[in-house]
């Protein structure tokens, strides 16, 4: 028996100013999923995430959610104003704007927030300003905020965008731990080798779903060329697909850095 369906996008199409960004996409998230959505810029990845979140209404098709589904959303860290005067604890607690409206952080809220921060290795940083944290810590704060409400489904938009290799590893390990703890995860990424290839399920999107399945099945030259519109080669390294970008290789040949 298949695991329970958390969100089902049934043949949805979304448009901004009459131009379709997502067209006839069928995408299902089940309990226990760990999905990476990949595709070029403007392929509709973030739009699909927003449809899953229920933040935008599709022009056609429909999105069905499990009743009472708790979701956590982590935006791109590049969209965060790091100079905004908030401490880590304030970032955590602001999400409780429905239940707690007043400025005072209650002892119960503080304890709950500190528990999540501890779990994510951010113990003792609660009174720090968000700008004072390292890249990995900043990303984890926003994951912690999303986890504050114990979500069943965690949705992340480009969690490794603009971060260094060490931070990328930290994020990947953190998400794997959360998945092991039973959190279902959907994320978008541009990082085919560093992130997407490590996930159990990948969706290649370019306005429509080009392929959906395990990386070993999805990461093929044909699918990638159809998705990105550029030739790419896929090699197997210790049983894991590795994507080679021919465009990059051509440039390296031209500038003489390839022997």
């Amino acid at each position: 028996m298949s695991p329970e369906v958390l969100v089902e996008c049934a043949h949805i199409s979304c448009a901004y100013d009459s131009a379709f960004v997502v067209h006839d996409v069928h995408f299902t998230v089940r309990k226990g999923d760990f999905v990476g959505i990949v595709g070029p810029s403007g392929s509709g990845k973030t739009t699909l995430l927003k449809a899953v979140l229920g933040a935008i209404r599709p022009q056609s098709g429909h999105v069905t959610m499990k009743p009472g589904l708790r979701m956590g959303y982590v935006p791109q860290v590049e969209s965060v104003d790091w100079n905004f005067p908030v401490t880590v604890l304030e970032v955590m607690v602001m999400t409780r704007s429905k239940v707690g409206r007043r400025p005072r952080i209650t002892a119960e809220e503080r304890t709950a927030a500190l528990e999540v921060l501890d779990r994510l290795g951010l113990g003792g940083l609660q009174d720090r300003h968000i700008r004072e944290l390292s890249g990995g810590q900043q990303q984890r704060v926003f994951v912690a905020r999303a986890l504050f409400h114990k979500p069943e489904l965690l949705i992340l938009d480009e969690p490794t965008s603009g971060v260094d290799i060490r931070t990328r590893h930290e994020v990947l390990h953190l998400l794997a731990d959360l998945h092991d703890d039973g959190v279902s995860i959907v994320l978008t990424t541009h990082d085919l080798n560093g992130l997407a290839a490590h996930l159990p399920r990948m969706v290649c999107l370019n306005r429509e779903v080009i392929a959906d399945g395990a990386p070993i099945d999805v990461l093929t030259s044909e699918v990638l060329e159809q998705t990105y519109g550029a030739p790419m080669e896929v090699l197997l390294h210790e049983g894991m697909p590795v994507v080679l970008d021919h465009g990059g290789t051509d440039v390296a040949k031209r500038v003489g850095t390839l022997l």
Partner: peptide, 23 residues
């Protein structure tokens, strides 16, 4: 401001996530 403190803070700091979170 006291009554809607957190909604005001959330919508000012991170309007996109605030919207998704029900603000």
């Amino acid at each position: 401001i006291l009554a809607f403190y957190r909604a005001l803070l959330f919508a000012t700091f991170d309007p996109e996530v605030a919207e998704v979170s029900g603000v």
